[in-house]
């Protein structure tokens, strides 16, 4: 077992508990924006695609990396914009001033 593996397991376990605590507070009226926001957050895999494409040294890797970057970029930009559009509707309510 490597030290890095142990650290990764720590990170994963703490993230699971943090995720559970934070997400379980979200009321059901916001479940769609929540899903859409988490969708955008996993668009962070674009980061991996950037490393793959930026370091690509064979034609296959160039092609795979490029497709991954396009998909990931569409995911992350589209996800946050669409979530914002949805939440804007929730914010407009007069009740919110209470």
């Amino acid at each position: 077992m490597t030290r890095e593996l142990v650290l990764s397991v720590y990170v994963i376990i703490l993230a699971i508990f943090t995720g559970y605590e934070v997400i379980s507070r979200v009321p059901s009226i916001l479940h769609t924006p929540l899903m859409s926001a988490t969708n955008a957050i996993h668009g962070i895999v674009l980061l991996g695609a950037m490393i793959v494409l930026g370091a690509a040294d064979t034609p296959v890797l160039h092609v795979l990396g490029f497709i991954a970057v396009v998909l990931g970029a569409a995911n992350v930009f589209g996800g946050f914009v669409v979530t914002d559009r949805m939440l804007e509707m929730f914010k407009k309510k007069p009740e919110e001033r209470k």
């Binding site: 990170v11 994963i12 993230a15 995720g19 988490t38 957050i41 962070i44 980061l47």
Partner: peptide, 13 residues
């Protein structure tokens, strides 16, 4: 690590 953390948060949700 950030990819692991973000992925797990989304997975939990």
């Amino acid at each position: 690590q950030i990819l692991v953390v973000a992925g797990i948060l989304v997975g939990a949700s």
